[in-house]
Design a protein around this nucleic acid. Structure first.
Lengths: 138, 138
DNA sequence: ACTAGTGTTATAGTTAGATAGTACACTAGG
DNA sequence: CCTAGTGTACTATCTAACTATAACACTAGT
């Protein structure tokens, strides 16, 4: 497990998104145990306090549940997970479209650019694209 | 002129992107004078040192040129501007597509989602894309 | 020369994020 | 009871970003 960190964004936020992506994409299923504070800290070479903050925020967003002394687990409320997925996708979409418009691209240009990018990336469009086969579709 | 700042990203980077967007979209033309350090600082309610850092970075990227005692001006090398535009668009595109893939969307889904978003936003697709020459901030 | 407007530099202080290290509290299993 | 593994809490220190304030240097116009 490893993450490419962007120096311009707080680490704890990047790890939050990393975990959320794993949940939303199905790599982590509802009820699954997530790594412990110390384990993930050692894994990512990050201070345990930073991981602790990450998990506290995830708990605040009701993405994970804590059982003291036992560990943390992915929420079992799938509706919550779907909501998070929608929220993250909506955010990505908005940032992209709005950003492209600000650069001066017209909506038709944007569609064309996405089509071309996807066409040039065809290999990832085949079935069985994900090794674990756990991509929840909407 | 005003910007909604995102607390999770350094202000000087956000202002950099703001200026670059204005240049790339044509709101600021090659050779145009850009606001002075003090003027923009007062305008955005930001410390002049922060603006100075913003402009120094823009200069380092050869987006603006400095004439000491006179002010700063948008580079007159249009090829440089086109390069920046391509770079910024490429970054937006990559973040979007890669991000959506990480959320579990397949390439076809992504195209569909963009098409739908654009369709629901038709008013901005008409010709004469820059009505007043105003590019909204976010 | 003077002035206004510009870029430039410097010092000091504040805050958020991250680190290092330690200690305490809870739970399951032997 | 004891231990290993878990979450939690606290203090101290460091750094980047930002602020506040001041001073200096250059240029054009008068």
């Amino acid at each position: 497990m490893s993450i490419e960190f962007d120096n311009n964004l707080p680490i704890y936020l990047q790890i939050m998104n990393y975990i959320k992506r794993q949940i939303v994409s199905g790599l982590l299923q509802p009820g699954d145990k997530i790594p412990s504070v110390r384990e993930l800290a050692a894994d990512l070479q990050i201070n345990p306090n930073t991981i602790q903050r990450t998990f506290q925020e995830l708990e605040r967003e009701e993405v994970v549940e804590t059982k003291r002394g036992l560990g943390r687990y992915v929420t079992s409320e799938e509706s919550k997970i779907m909501a998070i997925k929608k929220e993250m996708a909506g955010e990505l979409l908005h940032q992209f479209i709005h950003g492209m418009q600000e650069l001066g691209f017209k909506n038709q240009d944007i569609v064309t650019i996405v089509k071309e990018a996807v066409a040039a990336d065809g290999s990832k469009d085949r079935k069985g694209a994900h090794p674990d086969g756990h991509i929840a579709e909407s």
